[in-house]
Design a protein around this nucleic acid. Structure first.
Length: 220
DNA sequence: TGCCAGGCCGGGT
DNA sequence: ACCCGGCATGGC
């Protein structure tokens, strides 16, 4: 991907370039189907990616397609995704999502892609179990729409760097990135993934390890 | 051992 | 409009 990031905000530009040069491309969800990515987004809610991955592997053994999930009893589904935690809730959420997929898009992620982004976001948010982060993750990573995904790491890192205040909400933070960067799917994809990466390694909750962080000398 | 992880919902103030 | 408990497994 190009390293010439256009940004109205110098700090956002510099943070991205430093993270990208330090960690390299993160390449989230390589070679996965849109459907798999959407399910993965649900499974990863407040759960380590490792555990979500195990759940996905279990599903893939049985085949991971909308029609198969549709046929699978919720209880059975719950058992399969157990490693991801909150498995009863998540089984329900996955069922809800697939039901939605059939109801509006004939069970095909491809049909979803054709829908206009904002309308799609509203639809996703109306599904029980899909909140803002999961909706935006599906939009960006599964459907390749240029929306920025905000998560706990995005908040933590931007807060420590004085880009936002403590009471900045999801939509505001999302806008900060979307309004100041070129609306590029690849850029948003990598930027979010890089924020997660730096968050995991250098900006953990209650355990800030700034030493060695590529953004260390940018702290306020 | 307790805390944390790529949240969200529902009920109570 | 906030604030909080519940949901649950696996890793460090």
């Amino acid at each position: 991907m190009s390293l010439t990031v256009h940004s109205k905000n110098k700090k956002l530009k510099e943070i991205f370039e430093r993270l990208y040069n330090f960690f390299g491309p993160q390449g989230w969800w390589p070679g996965s189907t849109s459907f798999e990515i959407a399910i993965g987004a649900i499974l990863a809610q407040n759960t380590s990616w490792k555990n979500a991955e195990k759940a996905i592997e279990n599903l893939k053994k049985k085949t991971l397609s909308p029609s198969e999930i549709n046929k699978l009893p919720q209880k059975k589904l719950a058992t399969l995704i157990k490693p991801a935690g909150y498995y009863n809730q998540k089984a329900k959420k996955i069922k809800e999502f697939v039901k939605f997929l059939y109801e509006f898009y004939e069970g095909k992620m491809e049909n979803m892609k054709k829908e206009e982004t904002e309308r799609l976001r509203e639809q996703l948010l109306s599904i029980k179990g899909i909140g803002k982060e999961t909706a935006d993750s599906i939009l960006l990573y599964a459907l390749e729409k240029p929306v920025f995904v905000v998560d706990a790491y995005t908040y933590r890192v931007t807060l420590r760097h004085g880009l936002i205040s403590e009471d900045t909400d999801y939509e505001e933070l999302k806008k900060l990135f979307e309004d100041n960067l070129e609306k590029d799917v690849k850029l948003f994809n990598e930027y979010h993934a890089l924020l997660v990466r730096v968050g995991k390694e250098f900006c953990k909750k209650n355990k800030p390890i700034c030493s060695g962080c590529p953004l260390e000398d940018m702290l306020p």
